[in-house]
């Protein structure tokens, strides 16, 4: 455990909690892509199946349980409890275009051809693109609530910190996981455009809106 990974995990946790609290407090999930949230729930479910087979640390287990729990709570709020506020008309990204190629790739490029390992690989690849429905929704409506941009910022920050963590681990532990690194780089790149808008607009007190 190094400081980059810890702050990365905490940043990820912050993102998840910010989103859940925003939806819960405002009793509305307007502007949030339910599809991205279902993909993240799928990511956590397929990645953390090792909760049932191996114990790494209390920290590891606790964080996994919190991530899974919060992601399902978010999906529940969007599709069940607060369904009336869900903006499905703007959430039109075709997720099969992500799931099918990502599933195929997980079968072809993995560390070990076993069910758990293929599901882990699937979750890594899927996480790298799971935010696309949300970014697509923002590009479609041309704007995002400021709190939603904070959520995206912490989610992107988590990825950037994990990249530094991997550089650190490579130098000090000789550890590297090519699948996680390549997917992590792809995922971080997807946030770059958003980071630019966040810094130039949201941090200066303006609402995030895109030119028509």
């Amino acid at each position: 455990m190094n400081i980059f990974r810890l702050t990365g995990d905490l940043s990820h946790l912050a993102a998840i909690i910010i989103l859940l609290l925003k939806i819960w407090k405002s009793r509305s999930c307007a502007g949030i892509s339910g599809k991205s949230q279902v993909l993240f729930a799928l990511v956590f479910t397929t990645r953390y199946l090792d909760l049932l087979t191996s114990f790494i640390s209390l920290y590891n287990t606790t964080m996994k349980v919190i991530y899974i729990g919060c992601s399902y709570a978010t999906v529940y709020l969007i599709y069940m409890k607060l369904k009336a506020t869900y903006d499905g008309n703007h959430d039109t990204f075709r997720v099969e275009f992500l799931i099918v190629p990502v599933g195929g790739l997980a079968f072809l490029v993995n560390h070990d051809f076993s069910p758990l390992e293929i599901l882990w690989t699937f979750s890594i690849y899927l996480e790298s693109v799971a935010i696309l429905p949300q970014l697509f929704m923002i590009s479609k409506t041309g704007e995002a609530e400021t709190i939603t941009t904070h959520y995206l910022f912490f989610l992107g920050l988590y990825r950037a910190l994990y990249l530094i963590n991997w550089i650190w681990r490579f130098y000090f532990e000789g550890f590297f996981d090519m699948i996680a690194i390549v997917a992590g780089v792809v995922q971080t790149i997807l946030y770059c455009d958003f980071f630019y808008l966040y810094v130039t607009k949201v941090l200066k007190g303006k609402k995030l809106s895109l030119p028509a």
């Binding site: 995990d9 990645r47 076993s114 390992e117 994990y162």
Partner: peptide
Amino acid sequence: ADESVSHDEL
């Protein structure tokens, strides 16, 4: 199966 594959990150 390769038992050495372990994922300690989140």
